[in-house]
């Protein structure tokens, strides 16, 4: 019964596409959050993971999946149009792409990044070695990406 009720009550936020019991979710309604920064994620679970960090105080946009041409999932099946409209109409100063570094994730990142660049600064989260992980146990692909994404010491 509770599950049925939850299913009936929970929908998608009309602004960001995150799961919400209200038409507009708590994050989009929060006045103390930075509306000039949007973090773009593939799934609502990614919002929850990022919220746990307590580092990010901006807003989100949930795409609802990843572009996967081989599976027949194209850009038109994701909420990319809404995102471009949102970024172009609001005064967004930075769009952060927080998407998994898989081939589908890379495709989505490059595609969305290309569309957003005329309107705002586009960044993506770093990837490489996990915290607490030993260098010697890292696989070759991850290590190569970590080397590629190296940055100057402050």
């Amino acid at each position: 019964m509770a599950l049925v009720e939850a299913k009936l009550q929970v929908g998608y936020c009309s602004v960001c596409g995150h799961l919400s019991a209200e038409p507009v979710c708590d994050i989009c309604r929060a006045p103390n959050r930075d509306s000039k920064t949007i973090c773009i994620v593939a799934d609502s679970r990614d919002v929850i993971a990022l919220e746990k960090t307590r580092e990010y105080r901006g807003k989100y946009h949930v795409l609802g999946g990843l572009i996967s041409p081989i599976d027949g999932i194209g850009p038109e099946q994701l909420s990319i149009q809404q995102l471009v409209r949102r970024v172009s109409q609001q005064k967004v100063e930075e769009a952060i792409l927080a998407i998994s570094p898989s081939v589908e994730g890379e495709t989505t990142t490059l595609y969305v990044g290309h569309l957003l660049k005329p309107f705002t600064r586009v960044t993506r989260i770093a990837f490489g070695l996990p915290m607490g992980g030993d260098l010697e146990y890292a696989d070759e692909v991850t290590l190569a990406r970590a080397l590629e994404g190296r940055r100057d010491l402050e």
Binding site: P130, Y137, D139, V141
Partner: peptide
């Protein structure tokens, strides 16, 4: 999984 050694190795075109 985050610490899996198969993570990067299971990517496409590897």
């Amino acid at each position: 999984k985050q610490n899996s050694k198969m993570g990067g190795r299971s990517g496409l075109f590897v």
